[in-house]
Amino acid sequence: MLAKALAENKKTNQELLICDLYPEHIRTLTQNKLDQSHENCILLTDSSVWAILLLLIQNGYSASESHLILNPGLDGKSKNKHQNLQKLFSGSKQVSIPTQPLPCKISAAAILSPDEPQLEDFIRHFPDWITEIILVWDCIESAPVPKLQRFHRAEIINIHHPLDADFSAQRNRMLKNCSGEWIIYLDADERLHPESWDEIRLMTSCEACNGWYFPRMTFYPDQNHCRIGYGLWPDLQLRLFKNNCNLRFVNKIHEQLTGLQGASGILMDIPIHHLTHLLKSREKIESKLENFNLSTGGHFSHQLGSELPSIANNLLSPRKERKVGPLLLPDICMS
């Protein structure tokens, strides 16, 4: 086995990091006690390419300081997946945070249901430099909606239109009413840390990138733990992007933004805090998933499992002793 041979023959001052996108492979290695019998040997596994990438960068590994080797024994789908990881890790590069924001109007936006909990807190958590907040409500125009203007100095623009099981159409109504040069949007059960907003504002001045992804942490069962597995981390969300007339969301559910011009990147140390399990009952979440299922016409089935694996938040965050800057992504297509 290549991993075992490398571990046995590496020099004592070398570090061997074994990355695998198939957890069952790592289980085989650990059963052979590779991680215990060979010093300075680290095993890293997750079924998500993006999870491996973030864990590598957050823990101080970079292509410039590592010698990358693709296991020659890989073939088929496994080889393609690991090649994608290799290309992504090799082609990504960290960029500097601008020191001063350029004059820029930034629109904040959301699609909301009138019965969402803690909407006042949601509105308050946007910073004062947001100049307009576009809210698209899932209801007819005559229906009452919470009066939120007094909770923020920005102009709040209310749009009324039933969701009709089409999230992209609702998002596109949101885009149509955003007049800012940049747009940031969040859901009602999402928050950003107060200290993150200044960096977000600065990143709109980064000429190398026109769209930024955020990692998203779904807190469960409390605010100190995050759900993992099944693509739930890092759950990258493209939420900050430069406005242009070609932007459009597609897909009725799991909507995706198209028409972004230029490069994109990840704001590595600015996670979106997803509070759905802290704000809503299990019954409410299951009802929402049932609406999702109706939106797909039976093509997908979303279910809330009885077992929800989680891990301590600090294990999915950058090391405290190092600042992880924004990451510019290479121009490659990830499947």
Score class of each variant (00 low, 15 high):
residue 2 L to K: 12
residue 4 K to C: 01
residue 4 K to D: 11
residue 7 A to F: 01
residue 13 N to R: 08
residue 15 E to Q: 15
residue 16 L to K: 07
residue 17 L to P: 00
residue 21 L to N: 07
residue 22 Y to C: 12
residue 25 H to C: 10
residue 25 H to D: 14
residue 26 I to Y: 00
residue 34 L to H: 00
residue 34 L to I: 11
residue 36 Q to K: 01
residue 37 S to F: 04
residue 39 E to Q: 10
residue 43 L to S: 04
residue 44 L to V: 09
residue 46 D to G: 08
residue 48 S to F: 00
residue 49 V to H: 08
residue 50 W to A: 10
residue 55 L to T: 15
residue 60 G to K: 09
residue 61 Y to T: 01
residue 69 I to Y: 05
residue 71 N to I: 02
residue 71 N to F: 06
residue 72 P to F: 06
residue 72 P to N: 03
residue 73 G to S: 07
residue 77 K to V: 10
residue 79 K to C: 07
residue 81 K to L: 08
residue 82 H to W: 06
residue 82 H to T: 07
residue 84 N to E: 15
residue 91 G to F: 09
residue 92 S to Q: 05
residue 94 Q to G: 07
residue 95 V to H: 06
residue 98 P to Q: 14
residue 98 P to W: 15
residue 100 Q to T: 14
residue 102 L to D: 12
residue 104 C to H: 06
residue 105 K to P: 00
residue 105 K to D: 03
residue 115 D to E: 12
residue 117 P to C: 04
residue 118 Q to G: 00
residue 119 L to P: 06
residue 124 R to I: 09
residue 125 H to V: 02
residue 125 H to E: 09
residue 129 W to A: 06
residue 131 T to N: 12
residue 133 I to F: 08
residue 135 L to Q: 07
residue 143 A to I: 08
residue 144 P to T: 13
residue 148 L to G: 09
residue 148 L to I: 12
residue 149 Q to G: 04
residue 150 R to I: 05
residue 153 R to Q: 07
residue 155 E to Q: 13
residue 159 I to M: 01
residue 163 L to R: 13
residue 164 D to Q: 14
residue 165 A to V: 01
residue 170 Q to N: 10
residue 173 R to G: 09
residue 173 R to A: 10
residue 175 L to R: 03
residue 176 K to P: 00
residue 179 S to W: 08
residue 179 S to Q: 12
residue 179 S to F: 11
residue 180 G to I: 06
residue 183 I to Q: 10
residue 184 I to P: 08
residue 185 Y to C: 14
residue 190 E to I: 11
residue 190 E to R: 12
residue 191 R to T: 13
residue 195 E to Y: 03
residue 196 S to C: 05
residue 198 D to S: 14
residue 199 E to T: 15
residue 201 R to D: 12
residue 203 M to F: 05
residue 204 T to G: 10
residue 205 S to W: 14
residue 209 C to I: 13
residue 210 N to V: 08
residue 211 G to H: 12
residue 212 W to D: 01
residue 212 W to C: 03
residue 216 R to M: 14
residue 218 T to A: 13
residue 220 Y to L: 05
residue 224 N to H: 14
residue 224 N to S: 15
residue 225 H to D: 00
residue 225 H to W: 08
residue 228 I to R: 01
residue 230 Y to F: 04
residue 233 W to V: 12
residue 235 D to W: 15
residue 236 L to D: 08
residue 237 Q to E: 03
residue 237 Q to F: 13
residue 242 K to L: 01
residue 243 N to W: 06
residue 252 K to S: 15
residue 254 H to Q: 11
residue 256 Q to S: 11
residue 257 L to T: 12
residue 258 T to G: 06
residue 262 G to Q: 13
residue 269 D to L: 05
residue 270 I to V: 15
residue 278 L to V: 02
residue 280 K to S: 09
residue 280 K to Q: 15
residue 280 K to G: 00
residue 285 I to W: 05
residue 290 E to K: 13
residue 291 N to D: 09
residue 292 F to R: 12
residue 295 S to Y: 07
residue 295 S to F: 05
residue 296 T to H: 07
residue 304 L to P: 03
residue 309 P to W: 04
residue 313 N to V: 03
residue 314 N to R: 03
residue 317 S to P: 00
residue 318 P to R: 14
residue 319 R to S: 09
residue 320 K to L: 05
residue 327 L to Y: 11
residue 328 L to P: 08
residue 331 D to L: 07
residue 334 M to D: 05
